[in-house]
Design a binder for these strands. Structure first.
Lengths: 336, 336
DNA sequence: CGAGAATAAGACAGCGCTGTCATAATAAGA
DNA sequence: TCTTATTATGACAGCGCTGTCTTATTCTCG
């Protein structure tokens, strides 16, 4: 009672192995009669093609991998789900590969992954998509790549991104529009190019509205909750107390909110807080967080699509998806 | 410039294919001299064994899958990371397979997954681990299984679990110890056996402390944030206002907190709220959530371990890990 | 109506390994 | 010393498919 193979189907249908292969892969040069005959036989025998044998024999393996290194589980989850949904449609397998973006032998371990598993293509999420050395090394080896939200375009490499700069600019202007002038900013890791674009958007928006930049209002964070707490505390203890804080991701915004709560600072009455990403978390904190909606699932889904259909890989273009400012209850018109 | 194969290594080392295979798989009957010779050749050529070819030729595929269907991304993430870490240690691949626990052809799709990918074993997370039909069907096909937190033991099937009943009992007693008598309970989906055990623990703890059960204080939820909101609202609008609410997972507790905040009910001054799971979320809400720490990562890691080492599969025993009550600021002594 | 094109099938090698068996060399026991 | 174990290596088939080539059949169209 072993595995049902193509041979079994071929015998049952009274045709050759290759004909079964043709039918199952929707190749031409098979009459409709035989096509249905084979399909019926396969069905009756409960035949399931071996992806492993396919990968070994054929050119394609129907496997792609997602490289990941980000402290936010929500982000991870969304990216994964987006890619996974798209993969399922075409029977692709997705290998989720968390890794350390700063590891010296990242390149080596990624190539191992690709070679050992016959991976067809890789989706790189930030901050790995900003690792120019890695991208170059993989490109040189002719490994298909799609970058998600790289900070800057890389020639000849496909990418799917959102305009972090514009989104950040828009959010900052929204806060300014609410009357805020002292707007604190919690930045992300500088290795993360998208995080820098967010900071840049904030700065330019201040400029554009005639507000002088003040470095004491910009505090570094690392995209995790705790760093948001620390940064917020620093801001609140600083010389110039902000009336609004714009954190460059939701986790840090949640940390900032917690600190404000602990100190009895009312949100949004005394302090407006905005985030970035619109992860599930944004609607789970209190009050619901005003944030930039980044369609992470879509980004990942499009990235997977590009790898699967391979065509769009050729032109190596950058697809840009739209952001949206989600106005919720954590921000309000400046009091006083 | 194709792939470096075992043949290349064999030629370089001047030995047979099979000898290389022996060395790489740490099989006996190879002298140390040849062993190092082969290893050096492999290293120099940058040889990476093809997992695909291995899976096809050999008995084992070094692939396990994780079946998943749970509304909490944090839970998903933790389970996955736990299993993944363990898999990495032994060079196993983990296929993350979200699915619909209520789909009529779940069984079929899971078998497809297993057959197509030559999967060696499956980790079932709740509520799928409670699906007796599925477990039976897979068991009949001799597919290796490990259940995570199944509500009840299944004979001849390995499992890793935590005592949900005892944990829930302990948390309820903790709340009682704080002076609470009207304790609302937000239950999980009843298809989820662990969720029922949590409800049961709550009930028995009330009994054990001479507090009459009151069905109007028990409201159903579905383990997601929104259902927590709805349930909390129902509790607050009910005849008997609770002074504490015990939600059977953190996401629902977060929902409950949000409703309390909206209504200006102080936590924990006016209302204590407790959760279950101790996901990251528990420390991101305000105030930090008192909850039951469930070592999800460990559960998953142990489950993976069992599948990888296969030995423990034999005895089909149930491993139980410890819980811990995390006392944080969302609960306090009853006022009034 | 016959030459070339298009269509419809099958034979066969081979992807990169592992499992099994055969064989050679060495060690152990009587 | 000569037979049995034991250790060390290799030859070879085959896992379940796909890619390429070949052959047979049908379809065009001058």
């Amino acid at each position: 009672m072993g595995r049902v193979t193509m041979k079994d189907v071929a015998d049952a249908a009274g045709v050759s192995l290759k004909t079964v292969s043709r039918v199952l892969n929707n190749e031409p040069y098979v009459t409709d009669d035989i096509r249905t005959l084979v399909r019926k036989a396969a069905q009756k025998l409960n035949y399931r093609p071996s992806a492993v044998a396919r990968a070994l024999a054929g050119k394609r393996s129907n496997q792609i991998a997602l490289l990941y290194d980000n402290p936010s589980p929500y982000y991870a989850y969304e990216v994964q789900m987006g890619a996974l949904e798209r993969c399922r449609e075409d029977g692709f397998r997705l290998i989720f590969h968390p890794c350390d973006a700063n590891s010296p032998d990242l390149e080596h371990s990624v190539i191992d992954l690709v070679e050992e598993n016959h991976i067809e293509g890789l989706i790189l999420t930030p901050p790995i998509s900003d690792n120019q050395d890695l991208v170059k090394a993989l490109g040189d080896r002719a490994i298909a790549l799609v970058l998600i939200a790289p900070g800057r375009r890389v020639p000849d490499v496909a990418a799917v991104t959102m305009d972090d700069y514009a989104a950040s600019f828009a959010m900052t202007e929204y806060l300014i529009g609410l009357g805020h002038r002292e707007i604190g900013f919690i930045s992300g890791p500088s290795s993360h190019q998208a995080a820098r674009n967010r900071l840049y958007g904030y700065r330019r928006a201040l400029d554009a509205n005639g507000i002088a930049e003040d470095d004491s209002l910009v505090v570094p964070g690392t995209f995790d909750y705790t760093s948001g707490r620390v940064a917020c505390a620093a801001l609140l203890d600083g010389d110039r107390k902000p009336s609004a804080i714009f954190a460059s991701n939701d986790d840090m915004a949640a940390g900032a909110m917690a600190v404000a709560h602990e100190r009895g600072i009312g949100i949004p009455a005394d302090l407006s807080i905005a985030g970035f990403d619109d992860t599930n978390l944004a609607q789970m904190v209190w009050p619901p967080l005003t944030t930039v909606h980044q369609p992470v699932r879509d980004l990942a889904s499009i990235a997977a699509e590009i790898l699967i259909s391979r065509e769009k890989l050729r032109d190596a273009s950058t697809r840009t998806v739209d952001f949206e400012i989600m106005r919720r209850q954590s921000t309000a018109i400046r009091q006083k």
